[in-house]
Nucleic acid binder design. Sequence first.
DNA 1: CGGCACCCTCAACCTTACGTTTAGGCGCAG
DNA 2: CTGCGCCTAAACGTAAGGTTGAGGGTGCCG
Lengths: 253, 253
Amino acid sequence: MATEQQTLAMGDPAPEAPRGKPMTIGAVCKALANEFPDISISKIRYLEDQKLLAPRRTPGGYRLYNQGDVARLRTILRLQRDEFLPLRVIRQELASGRAEGEVTPGAPAPDDGAQRPRRRPGLSEPGSGSVYSLEDVVDETRADPKLIQELQDHGVIAGEQRGGTIWYDDTEREIVRAVVELARYGVGGRNLRVFRTSADREAALLQQILAPSLRSRNPERRREAVDALENLATVTTHLKHLLLLRDLRKLVA
Amino acid sequence: MATEQQTLAMGDPAPEAPRGKPMTIGAVCKALANEFPDISISKIRYLEDQKLLAPRRTPGGYRLYNQGDVARLRTILRLQRDEFLPLRVIRQELASGRAEGEVTPGAPAPDDGAQRPRRRPGLSEPGSGSVYSLEDVVDETRADPKLIQELQDHGVIAGEQRGGTIWYDDTEREIVRAVVELARYGVGGRNLRVFRTSADREAALLQQILAPSLRSRNPERRREAVDALENLATVTTHLKHLLLLRDLRKLVA
DNA sequence: CGGCACCCTCAACCTTACGTTTAGGCGCAG
DNA sequence: CTGCGCCTAAACGTAAGGTTGAGGGTGCCG
């Protein structure tokens, strides 16, 4: 524990996170101290230095952690403590959205031995089915609302108008998250359109291949086709990633 | 690689392990060099120092490794490279009999625990680079050799000519695996070129963004850039997958 | 407005893990 | 009996993962 913590006021009756309001670094540290005894303020700052966190700031420079930030921090600490993953790898896992929620249903699918990319959101089961308001999304992804508007204008995300507000689903929230991450590296609007059109083209290709089955009136046949589609999506994604790696390796060498 | 190895005789036609007889440390090192390129004699000795190995000795003090020792060593290296486990933890796993030895006749494999997911090789991972002969690849992917030839003609995979044979790396093997899988659904040659060019374009884009840092003479700055590149690759892949899902969902609905 | 607890950055420092290098010296096969 | 390959021990190197301390600002309470 950092010395800095020793000076914390001890009279606080509620060490738990006050749900909903953003917390200062000391409060976060205190809230996680039970679950992760070797947390410290300096460590949290260090993790930020290593690009694993990026909390909002007050005008004066104080860090402010919302619930999403705290959840992310908890995930980081868990991966480090229980899975022994180096921070470099944790950074990747988080960036790819592979490690976020611990909502593990009872029956894990038995792996057939083939190497597959880790669990991503499925096709027929759109995550939790929850929806998010604009504020939710902004809060969780720290995206500039203008950016979200822009994405919507370009048709990258759509949202669903219902009762005056627009609601976004998990996938759209994740899209925003990814876009924010890319923006941090300077990948901006114009480039995103490239991704979008290539995704569109690819979707058309896959759909064309499975068109007959998808149009089938036979429900079982249709379900099979949806399954196949999902599988195809996974495999092509994997393939594209490999091709990209191959190219990049040549560039780096 | 250790300097010591540089002096090894190069005329040996069979780098494979002479099945059955105990080997000296140099022979072991040579036998594993393909699968684990960053092995070295000094490293093997170091692992012994850390109580991860305990080979027999000749009266004169030479280490002698039998097949079991080599299997154990292979397991250690795999856990280190693919699962990022620290040696301290590997020692425990081995001691508690949780060795994933596939080549251990007579040894029951009592799997009591959660199966750890295999991680994808990174961009510049220090040691993710085993190499495979054409036969290895065919054997593992069940691909038609003609298909591999075709991929090579189209520049999708390249291989590395060395000493008469062509060697493929992990990424190339996985590419073949993915292509085979896609072929099962009827996605063939012409479509693959689409993927390839889009990967090329994307690689160029990412490289352009990081070009200044990548050209940097400062090694630290360069390493950071490579890291960022890897991260970008992961995130864009994730983003593209999300976009694809979004499109497909519309098609299915 | 003053005080006090809390927060900020930046640079230096520390420990541990994971090896490599070097120096000096035997083992053993041809 | 020669020389390639192996041995030990200790010094050295490098990176990850933090901690510490100096010097100074914030924010809220009374």
